[in-house]
Simulated assay, not measured.
Amino acid sequence: MGDIAKDINSKFPNNRIKAHINIRYTANWINSKESEFFKPYGISPQQYNILRILRGSGDKIKVQTVKNRMIERAPNATRLMDKLLEKNLIERTRCEEDRRVVYVNITEEGLLLLSEIDQSFNLSLLKNLTDEEAKQLSDLLDKIR
């Protein structure tokens, strides 16, 4: 089990600064691990997030709704969706009443990919935590926000 002070060879003036750096360092570590995991599937963690949002919606939803629900508010969400569209994982349609409104939904191919990912995507990144510790961590992160 690593210690942030040893991992980045640094001393911290107080525990709040240490916690802040630790959150950022750990988030970066998780992002790196997720990117590695999704590479063989040909999608990014952000694209996975979009596909999960669309699967959860059960029907077509506005592009703006997807952007609002994303974990990472990606300014390039439209480009991420373009790439999913090219791979036939999502579909896009314009609203007939208001041409400025664009809807998206997940395709059968997108659902199949998510199903495949679900079978191998485990939470091994958090394997060192008990269920109670994971709840405590989640509660503390909520408290920060």
Rank of each mutant, 00 (worst) to 15 (best):
M1A: 09
M1R: 10
G2Y: 14
D3G: 11
I4G: 04
A5G: 06
N9P: 04
S10P: 00
K11L: 14
N14A: 01
N15D: 14
R16W: 07
R16M: 11
R16Q: 15
R16L: 12
R16V: 15
R16N: 01
K18H: 03
A19T: 03
A19W: 00
N22L: 12
I23C: 03
R24Y: 13
T26Q: 13
A27D: 10
N28M: 14
W29F: 12
W29H: 14
I30G: 04
N31L: 10
N31K: 05
S32L: 02
E34C: 11
S35C: 10
S35V: 13
E36A: 07
F38L: 02
F38D: 05
F38A: 09
P40E: 01
Y41T: 02
Y41P: 03
G42I: 02
G42H: 05
I43W: 07
I43C: 08
S44H: 05
S44R: 03
S44G: 06
P45R: 05
Q47K: 06
Q47P: 08
Q47G: 07
Q47L: 02
Q47T: 01
Y48F: 04
Y48N: 04
Y48L: 05
Y48R: 01
N49Q: 04
N49C: 06
N49R: 00
L51I: 01
R52H: 05
R52L: 09
I53Q: 01
L54S: 09
L54M: 01
R55P: 03
G56Q: 07
S57N: 00
G58F: 06
K60T: 09
Q64H: 10
T65Q: 04
K67S: 12
E72A: 14
R73I: 06
A74H: 12
P75D: 10
P75R: 15
P75S: 13
N76M: 11
A77H: 02
T78R: 12
K83Y: 14
L84I: 07
L84S: 04
E86V: 10
K87M: 12
K87Y: 03
L89N: 00
L89M: 03
L89H: 00
E91M: 14
R92Q: 11
T93A: 04
R94T: 13
R94C: 07
C95K: 06
C95Q: 15
E97I: 10
R100Q: 07
R100A: 06
V102G: 01
V102I: 10
V102Y: 08
V104T: 09
N105H: 07
I106Y: 03
T107I: 05
E109K: 10
G110W: 04
L111Y: 10
L111T: 11
L111S: 12
L112Y: 14
L112W: 11
L112N: 15
L112G: 13
L112T: 15
L113N: 00
L113A: 07
L114T: 09
L114F: 11
S115V: 09
E116S: 10
I117F: 02
Q119F: 09
S120K: 06
S120W: 07
S120R: 05
F121M: 13
F121R: 00
N122E: 08
L125Y: 15
K127Q: 04
K127I: 10
L129Y: 14
D131W: 09
D131S: 13
D131Y: 12
A134C: 06
S138N: 13
S138A: 13
S138C: 12
D139S: 01
L140I: 09
L140N: 10
L140Q: 08
L141W: 06
L141K: 03
L141Q: 07
K143Q: 14
I144E: 08
